[in-house]
């Protein structure tokens, strides 16, 4: 899971910060981050997220819950 958090932090272009489940995306989840996250989740969990569902996620925990609901 730590690898997922690290790669997600890179996608969100966070400097010196690793996301936690509580991390709120704010305006960080732009269209490029959405497609990168879809690929990351597909690679690590073999789950294909829907772009619109991902955009609706407010926190990292929401994404984890979404993955769980589809896994």
């Amino acid at each position: 899971m730590s690898e997922f958090f690290e790669e997600l932090s890179e996608i969100l272009e966070l400097e010196d910060e690793i996301v936690t489940p509580e991390f709120a995306f704010g305006d960080k989840m732009d269209s490029l981050a959405v497609v990168s996250t879809i690929v990351l989740v597909d690679e690590q969990f073999n789950v294909l997220l829907d772009g619109n569902e991902l955009v609706a996620c407010k926190t990292v925990q929401d994404v984890l819950d979404l993955i769980k609901s589809k896994g």
């Binding site: 269209s31 959405v34 294909l48 997220l49 829907d50 772009g51 619109n52 955009v55």
Partner: peptide, 12 residues
């Protein structure tokens, strides 16, 4: 182009 949905279609 709705990039995310095109992307999704392609990966699927």
């Amino acid at each position: 182009m709705d990039g995310a949905s095109v992307f999704n279609f392609t990966l699927k």
